[in-house]
Design a binder for these strands. Sequence first.
DNA 1: ATAATAACAGTAATCATTACTGATAACGAT
DNA 2: ATCGTTATCAGTAATGATTACTGTTATTAT
Lengths: 122, 122
Amino acid sequence: MRYSRQRALITHILKGRCDHPTADMIYESARELEPNISLGTVYRNLKLLADEGVIITLETEDKRLHYDGDVSRHSHFICNECGKIVDLFKPSKTPNEIEELGLTVTGEKCVYYGLCSSCGAK
Amino acid sequence: MRYSRQRALITHILKGRCDHPTADMIYESARELEPNISLGTVYRNLKLLADEGVIITLETEDKRLHYDGDVSRHSHFICNECGKIVDLFKPSKTPNEIEELGLTVTGEKCVYYGLCSSCGAK
DNA sequence: ATAATAACAGTAATCATTACTGATAACGAT
DNA sequence: ATCGTTATCAGTAATGATTACTGTTATTAT
């Protein structure tokens, strides 16, 4: 993977903020420093960076992919009302521990990734 | 919410299978018994049923929403290779316990839902 | 420096999902 | 039981996030 100013910028932006922006939000930020950057370039590099494990993706119910520059093991809380995404460090926080942060938990979705038995055998 | 034959069929199909079909797959199944059912009807009812809590949605990396008729608390395993979705009962299975099912776990994404402190105050 | 090609900007295409329209069916009130 | 209201329908068009394409530019190994 060659160096590119655009990819470095996208990485820098994402690592320097603690929210979970969409591609479009990152595009807006990037244009402040690189006015001619293309939205396609943002999408392409976000996908590359996610494939490389440099950043993380977050599928939400708003149908848009959110990106997270923090690749340490942690989970997320999403407000059903305003859609705000909150980082929950310590991955195995129990619902009770989460409530202590002022959050009301009504549900959870936990997905594990990896290889199933048939794909792992190959 | 009024009764409709189409909605009853969609519910029946989803409750009667243990995979995690997309709207399109449910549409195919539904057309076997209700050949004139519309794809829009399938989408509309799946959304209604999910809002009512009768079924559950699952956002995956294939960009399509998957539906689950099992609303009991459980988590999922998705194979990175073939995309197969496996139910993991007992929601708090540890990675080690999952490995015993023949699955190789390389990552997890855990999201909690509810109300944040500002939205909860209202 | 040059050649090979990854990456770019700009834009068109894709495709899952949602919205719209006129027709039909469920169901409470008469 | 029929009527009127309106939720729901079938069919189809529109939406919008993401991806693919095209000709150009920039990176890097030789």
